[in-house]
Amino acid sequence: MGMFRESFFLAGNNKNRLKFIFSLMALRGIVKILPLLILYLVVLELLSARVDLGKILVLTAILATAFFVINIWDHYLALSAMKLGHKLSYDIRISLSDKLRKLSLGFFSRRPTG
């Protein structure tokens, strides 16, 4: 969990955005198991004495919709996560360079450039 704390420290001003992405990710984790639930219902139906074809087809339709939604969700989530990632590392680099300027030059002989 230390890792999460560290990333929030680095995020600085972008903290809220990062929180938003994190919670979307958590939701994604929940949504991801939706297909398994539907699968469970399908199995139940198949093993029941009298198989109701219509019900299975409805479930399949729900499954397809779920996949569709998940993938669209994933697409935008991945995009915004990446965007945030790039923005973050950009901000970090800028603030790092600003920080370097404020440190005494002695710092650079203690630490190899690179």
Binding site: P35, T60, L63, F67, H75, A78, L79, M82
Partner: peptide
């Protein structure tokens, strides 16, 4: 990442959802 995201999403969508075909 925008350019690569769409084909990737499509790819992912297709490979994760064979159940949609298998069940019917």
């Amino acid at each position: 990442s925008k350019e690569t995201a769409l084909p990737f999403t499509l790819y992912q969508a297709f490979i994760t959802s064979p159940l949609v075909v298998i069940i019917p």
